[in-house]
Design a protein around this nucleic acid. Sequence first.
DNA 1: TTTTAAATTAGAATGATTATAATTTAATAA
DNA 2: TTATTAAATTATAATCATTCTAATTTAAAA
Lengths: 158, 158
Amino acid sequence: MVIVEEQLKSMKQQMIAKGYKSTVQREATMRVLLEHERDHMSAEDVYMRVKERFPEIGLATVYRTLELLTELHLVEKMNFGDGVARFDLRSEGHEHMHHHMICSICGEVEEIQDDWLIELEQRVKREYGFNVSDHRLDFIGTFTSCKHGDCQRHGETA
Amino acid sequence: MVIVEEQLKSMKQQMIAKGYKSTVQREATMRVLLEHERDHMSAEDVYMRVKERFPEIGLATVYRTLELLTELHLVEKMNFGDGVARFDLRSEGHEHMHHHMICSICGEVEEIQDDWLIELEQRVKREYGFNVSDHRLDFIGTFTSCKHGDCQRHGETA
DNA sequence: TTTTAAATTAGAATGATTATAATTTAATAA
DNA sequence: TTATTAAATTATAATCATTCTAATTTAAAA
Ligand SMILES: [Zn+2]
Ligand SMILES: [Zn+2]
Ligand SMILES: [Zn+2]
Ligand SMILES: [Zn+2]
């Protein structure tokens, strides 16, 4: 886990390397994503956070920045079935997307950073002639702690 | 793979068992799903197919039926990132959702019916105290056949 | 056959996301 | 540094998938 400033610098460099401009709005948006790395925020969530420090930013700019970051493979646009897209930072140095555990009691989303699919991807190649470049793996279920009622987020929406 | 009529009967029974009514609109919708088992259709797609045989049906009814089938765990509502929900029949006798291979050249979606995640789910339980009740696994990549240009669906949207 | 809650219909409303046109700005080079 | 220009931003309108609403119809139970 690198410090935010360092990751921000790296993201800006990648943006410039691909011919995109570095703007204060984009920087503010990236900073919010970095500071909420595990939060799976919607565009609206990100917008509200950015607005706290940069009140004149427009919603469309946030949308476009998130789209751009997705295109640059810095961010993954995910849909967990609640009608909004959520934006998830891709971990530096990880070729493939991380996995998720989604609690069906409270909606909490936790991450598994290790790539557990290396072997299965060889199998996909062998058995189906399909060359995997990325993946998405979500586990749906319950944390033992949630089942016992001591769930921090019981009742919240997501 | 059972015959359509048989599966339809089973789905109707499950619907009635849970206290829902069996209607011609619901039957027509289920029939379309069964006849396009591997197609990953949007609600609009399903609506158009149902309309061919039942022109007076309304779009909202199709939406509500798909929602109901999702609730009954007969269908899975999936989002592949193109802005529409797609509805995928859950295979009879399979506790967990099947896996997908999504071709990034042509958008074709193919299914893997075997459950490849049994061991990983034990690991999730062991390492995170998370009890898995279902999962979603998509592989993104290319079929060897697509990479060589003989891709049937090259250029189509999805 | 009557009753009644559930389901359907058509159309309006919602809400997330995208497009538009005018204005501003980052990056390049004189 | 200043001028140039394409790219980015803003505010707002438009789009489009999905959901809601009120009136009407229907499936199932009595
Ligand atoms: Zn994540
Ligand atoms: Zn929980
Ligand atoms: Zn499928
Ligand atoms: Zn293909």
